[in-house]
């Protein structure tokens, strides 16, 4: 079966689009102070920030999976106005400037926040300025990407698989765990990748809600921002390291998760 040829204008625009993406990356690579990448790579601060970035983004993705998949299931089953409202609420963090998201997190989970104040008074728990705060900030900003992807997967899914499972005597939980979830794997995977990537690059909400402390809340994007003020070459070196690690993980995970690329 041969596919229709791509019209020339579409190809031209696609090339322009690709160039638009690649030029800044090329700039980063061409202008990179390669002499500094080595020292930056072995610097203990880099390892600390990179480790923290990976820990926070992976944890945020895990939290988003646990909370986001059920949310997507509920979203996909709703109709009409309720659906529009729920969907708008879910996607709000995508349009909200992340810094505003950070302030909103303060108002919810800070010492004076709706949930944070009782927590603080009852147990002395303070969430802001902790690694947990960085994870919360990343989850808040990144989870919508997962929810949207999984909900899309659910809506385009062939629901006869679930019906077949029910007719075979499987209750709702068994249908969800044994049939719905495995069939959603591609959507969950792409959603998790988007979510993770967004969490990894998160800056605004994190610096607002979690602050910037090396080893505790200073992820790579924060370290890059701080470095940009004093030593731009170091910032570029750090950016390159983040880029390389992200690429390696994305390419490596794809085969493992989806079986075939």
């Amino acid at each position: 079966m041969s596919q229709a040829r791509i019209p020339a204008p579409v190809l031209a625009l696609a090339a322009a689009g690709l160039l638009f993406f690649l030029l800044p990356l090329a700039g980063l690579i061409v202008r990179a102070p390669w002499g500094q990448v080595g020292p930056a790579l072995v610097a203990p601060e880099t390892a600390t920030a990179l480790g923290l970035s990976l820990f926070c983004s992976v944890t945020a993705t895990a939290v988003a999976l646990v909370l986001g998949i059920p949310l997507a299931v509920v979203l996909s089953r709703t109709q009409g106005t309720l659906r529009s409202v729920l969907r708008a609420l879910t996607t709000l963090p995508m349009v909200l400037p992340p810094v505003v998201g950070g302030v909103a997190l303060f108002l919810a989970f800070g010492r004076r926040g709706l949930v944070g104040e009782p927590l603080h008074q009852a147990f002395g728990i303070q969430i802001p300025f902790t690694t947990a705060a960085a994870v919360i900030a990343e989850t808040f900003v990144a989870m919508p990407f997962l929810v949207i992807a999984v909900e899309g997967g659910l809506r385009s899914m062939d629901h006869r698989y679930e019906e077949a499972a029910r007719a075979l005597g499987a209750g709702s939980w068994r249908v969800f765990a044994r049939v719905t979830l495995p069939l959603l794997r591609p959507a969950i995977f792409s959603g998790a990748v988007l979510c993770w990537a967004r969490a990894l690059g998160e800056f605004g909400a994190t610096i607002t809600f979690a602050g910037n402390l090396p080893g505790r809340t200073q992820t790579i994007p924060l370290a890059v921002y701080v470095a940009l003020e004093t030593r731009p070459e170091g910032a570029i070196a750090l950016s390159l390291i983040l880029l390389a690690v992200s690429l390696a993980i994305l390419i490596g995970m794809r085969d493992r998760w989806l079986g075939s690329p």
Binding site: V103, R112, P128, F129, I207, T208, N212, L213, L222, V226
Partner: peptide
Amino acid sequence: PASLEPQVTGVLSKVALGEA
């Protein structure tokens, strides 16, 4: 310190919000 803010405004807003 709980945080080392890249901008002075970050220090001010966190104190003003009562979080620091």
